[in-house]
Design a protein around this nucleic acid. Structure first.
Length: 509
RNA sequence: GCCCCGUUAGCUCAAUUGGCAGAGCAACUGACUCUUAAUCAGUAGGUUCGGGGUUCGAUUCCCUGACGGGGCACCA
């Protein structure tokens, strides 16, 4: 940034103060938003009433002793007409010191210009905030945008500019708020209680993932940022909150791409006396409710696919889906056959892999990407589901669990929750054994959680929904970053403290 | 972590085979009392992402680093 571009505007601040104008006043009485003025424009034009609106100047077309401007207020642009004879000579001098990007408030009457554009003929105005850093200039004519500000990285880093300059970005985050509100309403209306549980945890659990670590100074001990909401919420089931949910941020120390951000918003709810079948019905309803609200229809295109949320979501067993794609009977064929199939595809099989892991790999490799329409994949292997209850029909190998897939991406994960404390302890011990063998995502035994289950946890269904991903569908985003206000980016000016960071990263591996 | 592409004025973009780094908008000065990508005249504005190399000469070619995008791997 050349300093003179900023200095010019700072100099104008001094000039304004000399003219008795405070460039950063405390408040402004506005009577209407820009949208409201335009809404009832005919009536206001006829009545000659005075309106007061405020917004950021995005276009200036001065013509000597008169000028047109557009200001933008809450995403709505409206044209202003300034005339020296109307505002007075002194005020017009002040007007001449305004720049693109300044925020002003105006009072005036509603008029249509010669070309018919509804506008405000300004009688008086206040400068509300002087901008000293030049805004990127985006021009527009008849809906066609010129010099659009579209650099993806810049839009993420300086989202505030993206919001000023790109109206569709504003709509994305309105849709996001709509989805989140709808999810809350879905659960609130069914008697679920919203709660908050700790982000900082001495032991992390509830999912297969690597955590972020931090340090508590006073206790001089490490803490983990939670990777899931699961365990504290189940303790609340033990405590007698039969329907609870938390809608909040979790953190996973893994790669970033268009469907992964290190922190993301998760909705988890726990529903006593229900099983995973009922939870499937509810999730299906919640997806319909939130998508209908945001998209206005349940059939639409996303990610290059025509999706149908109107029809009942498919419900298919994981083992059947694998059989359809590979011909393997993964529960009964010899493990070597499963390994061979994976090797064919060049999949690296970890040392510790049991049959359950092989089934998961086969699903990831052969099935996942084929699931375009909303599909509940049910009944996962035990080895990869240490918190889910054994399947009522196949206690040995399977658990009652489902994941919801759309366009090959996971959106929800749910179980009939494991409430048998003896089995739960055994599962944790199995996980510990896997960890010994090198599975660094195996879950850690949480004695405190186990004790709570030992007091008696009601049978329950539990569900986790990836809210950001749902918002991607709702707001027609292509990347998670499109629906996060401030997605994580590397620092712009190189990396500070290279050495330290390098070591910490290696420790985490 | 790997592969591919990109980074030039405040913004959007040019620059032929390696030969003086340009335009529009924004800024500044002036004209203009219904314009709308306002118009007209003029002025100023550059570490061509950083570092190194090849060359008489590098925005351009080579090496290296940073950042961004896309893909792969990992994961939700």
């Amino acid at each position: 940034m050349r300093p003179e571009l900023i200095q010019t505007r700072i100099d104008k601040i001094a000039l304004l103060r000399e003219l008795g104008v405070e460039p950063y006043p405390y408040r402004f009485d506005r009577t209407h938003t820009a949208a409201e003025v335009l809404e009832g424009f005919e009536g206001r034009e006829a009545s000659g009433e005075t309106v007061a609106v405020a917004g950021r100047i995005l276009a200036l077309r001065p013509m000597g002793k008169a000028a047109f401007a557009h200001i933008q207020d809450s995403g709505q642009k409206i044209q202003l007409y300034f005339k020296k004879d109307d505002v007075g000579e002194d005020a017009y001098k002040v007007f001449k010191l305004l720049d693109l990007g300044d925020i002003i408030g105006v009072r005036g009457t509603c008029i249509r210009t010669r070309t018919g554009e509804p506008s405000i003929a300004v009688q008086s105005f206040d400068l509300l905030s002087k901008s000293i850093r030049p805004l990127p200039v985006v021009k527009e004519k008849e809906g066609q945008v010129f010099d659009a500000w579209q650099d993806t990285g810049e839009r993420y880093r300086r989202r505030y500019l993206d919001l000023v300059l790109n109206p569709e970005t504003r709509r994305v985050f309105q849709a996001r708020a709509d989805v989140i509100r709808t999810l809350r309403e879905s659960l609130d209306s069914r008697g679920f209680l919203e709660v908050e549980t700790p982000v900082l945890q001495a032991i992390y659990g509830g999912a297969m993932a690597r955590p972020f670590m931090t340090h508590h100074n006073a206790l001089d001990m490490p803490f983990f940022l939670r990777i899931a909401l699961e365990l504290p919420l189940k303790k609340l089931l033990v405590g007698g909150f039969d329907r609870v949910y938390e809608l909040s941020r979790v953190f996973r120390n893994e790669g970033m791409d268009r469907s992964h951000n290190p922190e993301f918003t998760m909705l988890e709810f726990y529903w006593a006396y229900a099983d995973y079948n009922e939870a499937m019905d509810l999730v299906e309803t919640m997806f319909r409710e939130s998508l209908a609200k945001a998209r206005g229809s349940l059939q639409f295109e996303w990610n290059g696919h025509a999706l149908d949320f109107e029809a009942p979501f498919a419900r298919k067993r994981m083992v059947d889906l694998i059989q359809e794609q590979t011909g393997l009977d993964v529960l009964n064929d010899p493990e070597d056959a499963l390994r061979a199939k994976l090797k064919e595809r060049g999949v690296k099989i970890p040392e510790f892999a049991e049959r359950g892991h092989l089934i998961e790999e086969l699903f990831d490799e052969f099935v996942e990407e084929t699931l375009i329409q909303p599909t509940f994949v049910t009944d996962h292997p035990r080895a990869i589901s240490p918190l889910a209850k054994v399947h009522r029909k196949d206690k040995e190998q399977l658990v009652e669990r489902y994941e919801l897939f759309i366009c090959g991406m996971e959106f929800a994960n749910a179980f009939s929750e494991l409430n048998d404390p003896i089995d739960q302890r055994q599962r944790f011990e199995d996980q510990a054994a896997l960890r010994e063998k090198g599975d660094d995502e195996a879950q850690v035994l949480d004695e405190d959680f186990l004790q709570s289950v030992e007091y008696g946890m009601p049978p329950a269904a539990g569900v986790g929904i990836g809210v950001d991903r749902l918002v991607m569908i709702a707001a027609d985003g292509y990347s998670l970053r499109d629906v996060l206000l401030f997605p994580h980016m590397r620092p712009e000016e190189g990396r500070a403290g290279d050495d330290e960071e390098g070591e910490a990263a290696e420790e985490g591996e």
